[in-house]
Amino acid sequence: MTGAILHDPLAVSYVEVPSISDTTVAEPPSMIGVLVFPDFQLLDAAGPISVFEIAARYAKGAPQIKVIAAQPGPVRSSSGVEMLARKFGPVGTLTTLLIAGGDGVEAASRNACTLNFVEKVAQRGTRIASVCSGAFVLAEAGLLDGRRVTTHWQRTRQFLRAYPNVKLEPDSIYVRDGNVWSSAGITAGIDLALAMVAEDHGEEIAQKTARQLVLYHRRSGGQSQFSSLLELKAPSGRFADLLTWAREHLDAPLTVDDLAERAGMSTRHFTRAFVAETGTTPSKAIERLRLEVARDRVQASHQPIELVAEATGFRDPERMRRAFIRAFGQPPQALRRSARAG
Rank of each mutant, 00 (worst) to 15 (best):
R176Q: 14
D177P: 04
G178R: 11
V180R: 07
W181R: 01
W181A: 01
S182R: 08
S183I: 04
A184N: 03
I186H: 04
T187H: 05
T187E: 06
A188M: 07
G189F: 02
G189D: 02
I190G: 00
D191H: 08
L194Q: 02
L194C: 07
D200N: 12
G202F: 08
G202I: 07
E203L: 12
A206H: 01
A206Y: 00
A206G: 06
Q207H: 14
K208T: 04
T209W: 03
T209P: 01
A210T: 03
A210H: 06
A210R: 02
L213Y: 09
L215P: 03
H217W: 15
R219L: 07
G221A: 11
G221C: 09
G222N: 05
S224W: 03
S224D: 14
S224K: 05
Q225T: 15
F226C: 08
S227Y: 12
S228F: 04
L229W: 04
L229H: 03
L230P: 02
L230N: 13
E231I: 03
E231V: 04
L232M: 15
K233N: 08
A234V: 04
A234N: 15
G237W: 06
G237S: 15
A240H: 06
D241E: 15
D241W: 12
L242M: 10
T244E: 13
T244L: 14
W245N: 06
W245S: 05
A246C: 10
A246W: 00
H249E: 08
H249Q: 10
L250A: 10
L250N: 07
D251F: 15
T255Q: 09
T255W: 06
D257Q: 15
D258P: 02
D258V: 11
D258Y: 07
L259P: 00
A260W: 00
R262E: 07
R262L: 09
A263I: 04
A263D: 08
A263E: 04
G264D: 13
M265D: 09
S266G: 14
H269Y: 12
F270P: 00
A273S: 13
A273G: 09
F274C: 03
V275D: 03
V275Q: 05
A276R: 12
A276Y: 08
G279H: 04
G279K: 03
T280Q: 05
P282T: 08
S283A: 14
K284D: 13
A285Y: 00
A285L: 08
I286A: 01
R288D: 05
R290N: 06
L291P: 00
V293I: 13
A294G: 07
A294P: 02
D296C: 12
D296A: 12
R297P: 03
V298I: 15
Q299H: 10
H302Q: 15
P304F: 09
I305P: 09
I305H: 12
I305M: 14
V308G: 01
V308D: 00
V308P: 00
A311V: 10
A311M: 11
A311G: 09
G313E: 02
